[in-house]
Design a protein around this nucleic acid. Sequence first.
DNA 1: AGCCTTTGACCAGCG
DNA 2: TCGCTGGTCAAAGGC
Length: 294
Amino acid sequence: MDTLQHFLSESETDISSCFVGEGITGITSEDIWDPILTQVLLTPWKDHSKANIMSPQEGFHDTVWETPNCCELEANISDSKTCWKFADLEDEYLRESSVQGSELSMTSSDTSHCSEIEEVNQQNALTRTEICTQENLWMSVDNQRLNIMPHSSIEGDDSWAVDSTYEGDGSLRKRPIMSKLQFKSNPLKPKATEIMKQKRVNLHSYHERNVQESVEFLLRNNTTPISDGYIWLKYGQKNIKNSMHPRSYFKCASVDCPIKKQVEESSEIEGCVSITYFGKHNHLPPSLHALRRR
DNA sequence: AGCCTTTGACCAGCG
DNA sequence: TCGCTGGTCAAAGGC
């Protein structure tokens, strides 16, 4: 079995070439968020939720942070010695620290630290601990399954991801979960009379959504397609005015998941495909088995 | 046969 | 009010 370092170096070579463009970072060890897990976050080309154009020098942690939740969370994490200790378990294999809403979850191949994590969660009044096995994690690595989405939030709440690397001042580095939008899914498909109501709701946020709640990635269109870890259904395609290429519309195949994405050839950078996500998943990624079946 | 994509129609917002 | 535009629906077609 390859080491983490080996995988990272291989990934940088193989995968970074897929992501290009002015102001775009390819995957480097700095850009990779959860490098070993199925969730791999990349610096987006445009984070419309922050109205920023990202550059390689601007990490997520350089974007806007001034929210009460952020400060509160930082205090929680920094005050936890156990959490720091856990963060020191570098290189053994893998770990994930993420905060979803008010919830902190960590995963590690080293299950012996489960109790520690649980303790941290309890101290911080956070609730969930997940353990991934070494086997299923490496299965994901072997297939180079990448998730280029912002880390999804089960709660659909304001969410934050916490990188476990240290800043110069010794604080934990954090990265925002980009979409702040809260979707409420309908358990039942709306009836005809309700569909238009729903449409009006959607259209009401149409312009806001375009500038505030989307995250755009650019992908070289001459590279092997990379799964983002989720299953998508195409539900439409439109020719866009003044655009040579049609725009395709996709929604997540998971029932009641509100996220959608649009794919079209980039008008800004030739030879690139623009992938824009609206909203966020309200569920975990499907199993590798389910992905393969598709 | 079932799942997914295609594609024309429909709708609301906007100027 | 009307036409344009983009987002979505859903029947039909393809695999």
